[in-house]
Amino acid sequence: MKKANINLIVNGKEYKITVEPDERLLDTLRDRLHLTGVKEGCSIGECGACTVILDGKAVNSCMVYSFQIDGSEVLTVEGLETNGKLDPLQEAFIDHQAVQCGFCTPGMLMSAKALLKENPYPERTEIKTAIEGNLCRCTGYQQIVEAIESVVKNKD
């Protein structure tokens, strides 16, 4: 297999990139674009630390080959801020102390962001389903769920 030239929009910015045939989206983001907020925890799509939003859906970026997503749009944790203002989810994670070691946090935020884009008023169980694929060993998830719920409530 050969290298591939792809176009990507990452966090609103257009890139033309030449990628290796076995290059994962995770590698492209971390190694080429230096978006190191995307974390690698297991490399098999189980832990969710590498979650990004790909064309509106939360995906494990370790499970996507970059050459397959020519023309796609990607949002990472680095793209959550708009005009220097934190996303309400980021604010809520701060207010609810939903972070300890922080390694799962970017992935958690992206799963929650994808959920709220599709379903602005999720129930608690829907929130849990959305972040079920994001493992966290520190927090027991409670403050994370509370943080996401607070964003939903504050929409009214």
Binding site: T36, G37, K39, E78, E81, L86, Q90, F93, Q97
Partner: peptide
């Protein structure tokens, strides 16, 4: 319950871990 002093870095993806 003051906010964590390292939390801004962590929610923005700016916190640099070893592999970063």
């Amino acid at each position: 319950s003051e906010k964590r002093v390292d939390i801004y870095e962590k929610v923005t993806g700016r916190a640099k871990y070893g592999a970063d």
